[in-house]
Design a protein around this nucleic acid. Structure first.
Length: 876
RNA sequence: GCGGAGUUAGCUCAGCGGUAGAGCAUCUCGCUUACACCGAGGGGGUCGGGGGUUCGAAUCCCUCACUCCGCACCA
């Protein structure tokens, strides 16, 4: 029974059909059996803000490779998919979207606005699912989760209440990072620092009752309106006499004290005088607390000046106010020197707005008690970070961690389960309280703030498994095994999952973390819409199929950033095409189906067949090893190298004489077909995690026992298949063929010209091999005759390959200039190497210190070089 | 300022103590009945500079230079 493949590789004709088949058959859904060896992984939930980009394609391809590999390797495998509500980001996008239609969220009100976001979420969630489907992600959609799901929300609430009861969550007044655009507090890590060309302004503050002025320097003149002191160093002789006096704050005309503060002021820096604005600068805030200074808020939550800034400036934007303040200082002659100044400014990463340090009441997580065990988990190796160099970064951050601001003044997210009674007693509990447990008063008002989105994603590995309930999923699949994600969320997400996981489940949520790099364009530039160098993964899938994209991503993943361009993907789509065509060739000749094929009897195989099985075995070994250490590049390269350059270029070509009936009998042909089937079958299995679609489409035609390749066993190396002897003979045969082709071209013959080859095999075994395998050389090297152990005529071209002398007899003596030059260079090169090897072997230190194997290697290399030189010289 | 990574063929990278590699690009020849998204062959590198350890260094150590990425600071 013959199965054929279409002449053309057309991924569109089968990719979606196959995925549907897998999903319908339930292959993505594991059983909940705690007894079976399990493997689980949770997706880094993409934000429901929009479509997936190429970075998502990368991280999900890598997860799918591992997941498919583990599933085929016999593990009860679960990959949990899902999405993140992404607090600020989603709220911002939907708000902008509605504004385009002329609707403001404030008109809509909280409830209606949140409803709008839910609609948006549903649309994008399904779009994301569709995209992952197109990539071939074998995730269990029956277990899909969303961070605002009922179950996950319960986990969030449980954790909040627990941490509050344990004293690890507290509410306090503090200086936080405020985004005037988003009108919410954000945590320290959400602030990004941007280098900016700015100006440093010097401002003179007159001293009351004196002619003296002190000069301060600032990049933010508008904040001077909120100054409540001027500080100098207590031991600074220049200003010592001013301590305790008053300075007159220009414009505001307020009197503010000159104070001494050794912590705030560095004598060496600038003028040695610092303006102190406790309400709008972090250091000043602390100095204010130390010195009992007033906090005067001159910039409001909206980034506009408050009435405290003076009637004329109130309501003006902070940057406009800056210009105004400068103009006024200029007229009053109190503006000093203005210097260009480069410094970093903190901005909100999501909207690029300058952060305004602001004093406000917020909720915080006391982080140190959580961080300590999380540091220990990595230090002890119970959580392994790959590549390991990230560990240093992890420790550095975790050891200097600050309390985490978790409240957000947003509408979209988990509302904080804290309730205030009319007397402002706070109650935090799992259930909504009717009346105040402390004073009995009612009604209770729930806190309007929501939680930082990362608070819920920090629970993802166990909240998705049904925790805090003791569910079958939790027992079977938690802790998860591997986490694959981008290094950019190591602190945002990975660290928090480790902290929360250990605190609440007593176990680290995963044992290995693979951090992948950033996908960049071919020039190594970051991809961005403004640069126009973005690659949409779905466009690529449309063009060349998911398999080519996946393989390209995998073969470029070593742990560092990945340069990616269209031409690169094009290159690997050629490989997929090659697989298709080689399989097509094989299927034209195969008659047996896999399920009817008997085990291969290795003892009766030809050397070529033993050789390709040995190579395949080596490939199998290396692919499994590489995947186990996340070297996707190594695994993919090994497969590429084997399939294309060993299987296609050599094995298939060598099998053709037998398959096409030009050599050997029917018995030989049967054996060759059996091996061809074996190699194709195993290759497809090995390739499947990387290219699930094309391998499945072909493999289904091989008639295997399993209904799908994705649930067929992954190959494991078997030592019996290793065959150094066959490898040696094939290396010699290949070298001979290459040498003939080579010399033919150098001497100006065309591929059609045929010659006689003399092989001087000393060992009877070798001689016998070349006699029985003469057909290989005759066909592939295009010979007229192969003479084993005969005397070559004068004028033949001599060489030595793999220690075996050979000679090529030409019909006429043609020596091209190119050939002479080439021989000269060959000789020169060999002489140089021989001199080096001889020098080494003459060195007693080398002989006594180097491992015996290395010495032996050098000796045989010397023998080979000597023999080869002798032969090459005959060619001159 | 602290920490990390990088500097290998024209490009993008692998190799990390024992004869310099891959993919792409380039050049020559070939449409040989799986594949021109192909086949065969060629050219191309003193492995960033300098020092050291070693019988032996692209590979280990020191140092310098440049690039990138975190974190901190920034009157």
């Amino acid at each position: 029974m013959k199965h054929e493949l279409d002449t053309r590789y057309d991924p569109k004709s089968f990719e979606q059909r196959l995925y549907q088949g897998w999903e319908n058959a339930g292959y993505f859904t594991p059983e909940t059996d705690p007894e079976r060896p399990g493997f689980s992984i949770v997706i880094p939930p993409p934000n429901v803000t929009g479509r997936l980009h190429i970075g998502h394609a990368l991280v999900n391809t890598l997860q799918d490779i591992i997941v498919r590999w583990k599933r085929m390797s016999g593990f009860n495998t679960l990959w949990v998919p899902g999405t993140d509500h992404a607090g600020i980001a989603t709220q911002m996008i939907v708000e902008r979207h509605l504004l385009k239609q002329g609707i403001s969220r404030f008109e809509l009100g909280r409830e209606k606005f949140v409803e709008e976001i839910w609609k948006w979420k549903e649309q994008h969630r399904s779009e994301i699912k569709d995209q992952l489907t197109r990539l071939g992600a074998s995730a269990d959609w029956t277990r899909e989760r969303f961070t605002l799901d009922e179950g996950l929300s319960r986990a969030v609430r449980y954790v909040f209440v627990k941490l509050y009861e344990d004293g690890l969550i507290y509410r306090d007044v503090a200086m936080v990072n405020w985004c005037p655009n988003c009108r919410t507090a954000i945590s320290d890590i959400e602030v990004e620092f941007r280098e900016r060309q700015s100006k440093l302004y010097h401002i003179h503050y007159p001293i009351e009752g004196s002619e003296r002025k002190v000069t301060v320097a600032t990049t933010r003149p508008e904040t001077m309106l909120g100054d409540t002191a001027v500080a100098v160093h207590p031991e600074d002789e220049r200003y010592r006499d001013l301590i305790g006096k008053k300075a007159v704050l220009p414009i505001a005309e307020r009197r503010i004290p000159v104070i001494a503060d050794p912590i705030l002021v560095d004598r060496e820096f600038g003028t040695g005088v610092v303006k102190v604005t406790p309400a709008h600068d972090k250091n000043d805030y602390e100095a204010g607390l130390r010195n009992g200074l007033e906090q005067l808020q001159v910039i409001g939550e909206d980034g506009r000046m408050t009435p405290a800034a003076g009637a004329e400036l109130a309501g003006r934007d902070r940057f406009e106010a800056r210009k105004e303040v400068l103009a006024r200082l200029e007229t009053s002659g109190l503006l000093g020197e203005t210097k260009p100044y480069t410094h970093s400014v903190g901005v909100h990463g999501k909207c690029d707005t300058d952060i305004e340090p602001m004093v406000s009441t917020q909720w915080f997580v006391r982080i140190e008690p959580l961080a300590k065990p999380a540091i220990e988990a990595v230090r002890s190796g119970s959580v392994q970070i790959v590549p390991q160099s990230w560990e240093a970064t992890y420790f550095n951050w975790m050891e200097n961690i600050h309390d985490w601001t978790i409240s957000r003044q947003l509408w979209w997210g988990h509302r904080i389960p804290a309730y205030y009674c009319p007397d402002n007693h706070i109650t935090v509990s799992m259930d909504d309280p009717e009346a105040c447990p402390q004073c009995g008063a009612a009604p209770m008002r729930q806190e309007t703030d929501v939680l930082d989105t990362w608070f819920s994603s920090g629970l993802w590995p166990f909240s998705t498994m049904g925790w805090p309930d003791d569910t079958a999923d939790y027992r079977t699949f938690y802790p998860t095994d591997t986490l694959i994600t981008g290094f950019d969320i190591l602190f945002f997400w990975v660290a928090r999952m480790i902290m929360m996981g250990i605190r609440f489940t007593g176990k680290a949520p995963f044992s290995q973390v693979f951090l992948n790099g950033l996908v960049r364009d071919e020039q190594g530039q970051k991809m961005s819409k403004t640069k126009g160098n973005v690659i949409d993964p779905l466009d690529v899938v449309e063009e060349v199929g998911a398999d080519a994209l996946r393989f390209t991503l995998a073969i470029n993943t070593s742990g560092r950033d990945i340069p990616l361009g269209r031409s690169r993907i094009q290159g690997y789509s050629a490989f997929v095409n090659k697989i298709w065509n080689a399989s097509r060739f094989a299927l034209m000749h195969l008659e047996l189906e896999l399920k009817d094929a008997r085990a291969i009897d290795r003892d009766h195989l030809r050397t070529v067949e033993r050789w390709i099985l040995s190579r395949l075995n080596e490939t199998t070994k290396s692919v499994n090893r590489s995947l186990s250490i996340f070297r996707f590049d190594e695994a993919a390269s090994a497969l590429y190298q084997f399939f294309w350059h060993e299987f296609c270029d050599w094995y298939i070509e060598m099998a053709k004489p037998v398959l096409l009936g030009r050599h050997g009998g029917e018995g030989e042909q049967k054996k060759a077909k059996r091996v061809l089937l074996e190699v194709l079958d195993r290759s497809l299995r090995l390739l499947h995690p990387f290219m699930p679609f094309v391998t499945e489409e072909i493999w289904l035609k091989l008639g295997g026992v399993e209904p799908s390749l994705m649930i067929a066993p992954y190959p494991v190396a078997e030592d019996v298949l290793e065959d150094p002897d066959a490898e040696r003979m094939m290396a010699a045969t290949r070298s001979m063929i290459t040498t003939v082709r080579n010399v033919r071209a150098e001497r100006g013959f065309t591929p059609k010209d045929r010659f006689r080859l003399y092989v001087a095999a000393k060992e009877p075994r070798d001689a016998n091999f070349f006699r029985t395998h003469a057909y290989l050389l005759l066909e592939l090297a295009r010979l007229t005759e192969l003479v084993v152990d005969g005397e070559p005529p004068a004028g033949a071209h001599h060489d030595v390959v793999e220690g075996i002398p050979i000679a090529i007899e030409f019909p006429e003596k043609v020596i091209t200039a190119e050939q002479v030059e080439r021989t000269r260079r060959e000789i020169e090169k060999s002489e140089k190497e021989l001199a080096a090897v001889e020098a080494r072997l003459a060195n007693d230190q080398f002989l006594s210190n180097a491992p015996p194997a290395v010495v032996r290697g050098a000796e045989s290399r010397r023998a080979e070089l000597r023999a080869r030189l002798e032969k090459l010289q005959q060619n001159q």
